[in-house]
Design a binder for these strands. Structure first.
Lengths: 258, 258
DNA sequence: AGATATGATTCCTTCATGCAGAACAACACC
DNA sequence: GGTGTTGTTCTGCATGAAGGAATCATATCT
């Protein structure tokens, strides 16, 4: 039972969602892209009265999820939210955790290994170790790529709920990548279902002609996907080894996931 | 105007808080100490009907803040919450960020420098660099200390709201530390008010006889306290230098805070 | 100084939504 | 099969969430 509310771009599968809680959650979601929330800004974003926005903000503040540096100032993440974040993201940063795995994967396969995280509809290259071949994928630390045209991105998109996926891809038509790239949301959903079944994702010249990548998601102790490890290199070398690479990568990531 | 609700240990200063949003926030707060939330457990914690708990959980799930691995399974942090967490905690881990400051502070002062974060009513020693004196504070990375008896802990407690502080310290009597340590919540609040005014915190033989520490909180771009840098050493050396150490530390941390 | 604009905060009334209870569903265990 | 436990769905009602108006607080301009 989908309930598509026009003004609020919110879709949810539950017919008895608590609207006021949806609004509060949306306030928190705003923190993904901004650090300071103003009452009027929140009111506009939610489509509610300023007094309602203020009420929600101060309620979240009272629980420590938001803070206000001084009266009449913008609302920022509160100490409790920082703690939740630290707990959720993990005490040991993902980068440190994944570094030995990257080294080993690059060594074992001879190909370039990357750690990526999802941000909106893009993946961010967080860390990388280059393979030993003269012709190899370059490390792209700090760069971004469209999620739906990359193995790492697809592996992480496969971990999203249907509602979250629809929120991030409101349009049926998807652009970007090569002619081989996924072009519609329907195709994407089909591919993501396959990835969930396989346990790994593949990029076959979708982000760039001649480039192939195999990716497996990393989960934290609670089962949430927090990043992805990706092996990438020239199609001519990797395409015939996809299943072998995927198997090895899954074993390595499984070590990390325990 | 305090509204102390007996069953729910929640105190808030706003007379028009949204009760359903408080309950949703409390669900998220549970994630500080557990990764998986069960409907019945949440119902007990909030003091609501199971159907209400389920409704709140599925609402948060619909916004991506929670996830459920399969139908009828426990609820875990969702991808959007991971993103909020990462955004709030920062893309570059605190440890990496603070490391150069620790080195410089230890070098400049000759004393041991630590990075600490707050967790509940304790501080955790995240990183440390030892001073050059033969008699010095040892590094305590990985260890914990009661927040109210340590400079770092007090500096971070000073950043909490009154409600959050009362939640963490429900009792007036505080135990732990030496005879010099703060023994009541009233004393603590008075000390924290002073720390907020001074901009730094001091431990004068409160956690351990003969140990002195000076601490300054680190804030992220939005002004939220994310950790603390602390200088510690023997009282005989540090007590006469408190203001000098605090001034230098504040200048270093200010560099970090920009 | 006063006037104006802007954005946050407080309060009150109303009605629509949040809550609880009941029923149902799904599983595990005996 | 029956029993127990826990998650899920639905409905009716009363109470709490929303909005509007007023107020407050600050900055800027004349």
């Amino acid at each position: 039972m989908q309930n598509n509310t026009e003004g609020a771009t919110t879709e949810n599968t539950t017919p008895y969602a608590v609207e006021s809680v949806i609004n509060a959650a949306r306030i928190l979601l705003m923190l993904r892209s901004t650090r300071a929330l103003q009452v009027g800004q929140v009111a506009d974003e939610l489509g509610v009265a300023r007094s309602t926005a203020h009420r929600l903000l101060t309620t979240l503040q009272s629980q420590g999820l938001l803070a206000q540096a001084a009266a009449r100032r913008a609302y920022t993440p509160g100490p409790a939210l920082v703690e939740i974040g630290a707990s959720v993201v993990g005490a040991v940063s993902l980068r440190e955790l994944a570094q030995p795995i990257l080294e080993r994967v690059a060594h074992d396969t001879g190909e370039t290994a990357h750690l990526l995280v999802l941000h909106g509809t893009e993946v961010v290259f967080v860390d990388g170790v280059e393979g030993r071949h003269a012709i190899r994928a370059a490390t792209r630390v700090g760069e971004r790529e469209l999620a739906h045209v990359s193995a790492g991105g697809k592996a992480l998109l496969a971990e999203l709920s249907e509602e979250e996926l629809d929120r991030r891809y409101p349009d049926e038509k998807l652009s970007g990548g090569t002619d081989s790239a996924i072009g519609t949301r329907t195709q994407l959903k089909s591919e993501l279902a396959r990835i969930r079944e396989d346990g790994f994702a593949v990029n076959r010249s979708e982000s760039e002609a001649g480039l192939c990548a195999v990716s497996v998601a990393i989960h934290d102790a609670g089962g949430s996907a927090i990043g992805v490890i990706s092996i990438s290199g020239p199609s001519m070398r990797l395409l015939e080894r996809v299943d072998e690479l995927a198997g090895g990568l899954r074993a390595r990531v499984a070590d990390l996931n325990t």
